[in-house]
Amino acid sequence: MDSTEPTELVELVRRAQKGNEAAQRELIVSYQHRIAGFVYAITNRSDSVEDLAQQIFIKMVRALERLQAPAQFESWLFRLARNTCIDHLRRQKLRRIFMPFAPEHEDVPEPPGAVDTEELDALRHALGQLRPQDRALLALVQEGRSHAEIADALSITVAAVKARLHRAREQLRQYYQPHHES
């Protein structure tokens, strides 16, 4: 929500907390693209983006009245998104234990057109090698969040954010190899 002033956001969140559907709708519309991007960053799969984004916003609407500090809305929403995605990946992992798929069904490639350049493909591959938590961290940095905001969204300390960020960047650099570079 780049164009909205913090005070406007707080006011909007307060109205949404009181059950104002127009305010809830405005919040969803304002954040849906950023949350979709964040979900894609964590899961690295675009086919589950809509389902997960839907789950996240339904949880947001239902839990909004329990948010005590409306000014913390963004951190709270991204924490909710991160937890929903991590739960989804955990459930998927468990399901694979009980219903193992053949290797060719394990990693179904993205549909054609989803990845349109070699560099994007290389980045997707490199990101796929990282832990979902590290992908979430990099996505929040790209969102322009400060270390303190990221620490709040991921429920870790600022020092841990810095250390993990350094490690994630190193790993991404290591795995990122477009075909023309390799």
Binding site: E21, Q24, A36, G37, V39, Y40, A41, V61, R62
Partner: peptide, 27 residues
């Protein structure tokens, strides 16, 4: 940065029209 922006645009394109209304109805 450009890659992340492209990825975000791609992810956003996965949301079908009327997403917000559908979420509110389901909630």
């Amino acid at each position: 940065t450009r890659h992340w922006r492209d990825r975000q645009a791609h992810a956003a394109s996965r949301l079908s029209p009327g997403f917000a209304d559908r979420v509110l109805r389901m909630a």
